[in-house]
Write a protein that binds this DNA or RNA. Sequence first.
DNA 1: GACGAATTAGGACGGCAGTCCTATTCTGCG
DNA 2: CGCAGAATAGGACTGCCGTCCTAATTCGTC
Lengths: 192, 192
Amino acid sequence: MKTRDQILESADQLFYQQGYEHTSFSDIAKAVRISRGNFYHHFKTKDEILHAVIDLRANNTRAMLEEWESGHEDPMARIRCYLQILLTNGSNISLYGCPVGTLSSELAKLDHASQGDAVGIFTLFREWLGKQFSLLGCGSDADALAMHVLAWSQGVATLVNAFPDEAFVLREVNHMCAWLQARVSDPGKAGL
Amino acid sequence: MKTRDQILESADQLFYQQGYEHTSFSDIAKAVRISRGNFYHHFKTKDEILHAVIDLRANNTRAMLEEWESGHEDPMARIRCYLQILLTNGSNISLYGCPVGTLSSELAKLDHASQGDAVGIFTLFREWLGKQFSLLGCGSDADALAMHVLAWSQGVATLVNAFPDEAFVLREVNHMCAWLQARVSDPGKAGL
DNA sequence: GACGAATTAGGACGGCAGTCCTATTCTGCG
DNA sequence: CGCAGAATAGGACTGCCGTCCTAATTCGTC
């Protein structure tokens, strides 16, 4: 495996676990077991690493979304795949929050130039969810529904990070699935 | 106004806008227009300032909750007060996110000793909301409903920070109010 | 007005951050 | 083998961080 990729992989993980600003070159160097000075050959600045990490995450996200799409014919089942991450990634989320949301929030506070790129990952989910709702015949509500699902899952991630409680996540995911079912089968009754 | 209080007020604001770690002593000194060395007389460490800021926020929160409680007889109206902050504080939230959620997330990543205190502010809202749901006759569901409302609002705050869009917040708050009404008047139909 | 305590200013300090340079080692290819 | 270019190690450099000290000033009280 190329050193550059190892750096990216470690940076990706450390940025998630410790935050971007709190992660130093030394931290990454220690993780990759490489000398500090060697970085300069692969990345000229810390911002450049961040940019590459966001790119990596975006590509991974795209691949995941495509996988869900090719794995399920039913758009509802696809959306459930999205909701399931809260459970399958539960332990990480309760420790570090959602990788997309926390990075976006941190960069917003730092007024960092890459904040837009981080939001871009949100946009991938937003448009993908919107597409699924369109396929379900939600028409002009599709984007609003996508935003609603995004917000819901973000909130659960934030809360479980504050109050680690697996039962809470399970309850909320079930609630979301039930709402999804009701909303699609009878748009009037389920609100929004 | 006492210097100590001015420091706290500025630190409170800067921690919110820039994050705890990204805010330096110099930043606060500049805001209060005080010499850097003077800090040591009021606070021995940065952690001590953070602790005092969290205390301040907790007290402000308690006061706000009591105000809502004494201002409205109807528990539903009280809960709506909570939901309204998303609108009245909309511009700050879209710029910096929720003060409670973002601080809690940051401290979780820093593995900071005060993270528990920050979560304590969440707990204030949680228990207050739970109390209102109890008064509405939700019995053993009260805490779950409180967590649900908390998660919902957190998610909206995170999303509007990523996608500044006032219409989205308005839509979600209306949705929440409608859900609240439905859930209380007919627990079975509205789910959870 | 004088004195002791509280407050303030200014800067010293050690440490680590991000950046950048240079000398050395590795690697692929004629 | 020999050589050019890539990759690596180690450390120098500047600058800011949090912390802490000391001297000067202000302030309340007798």
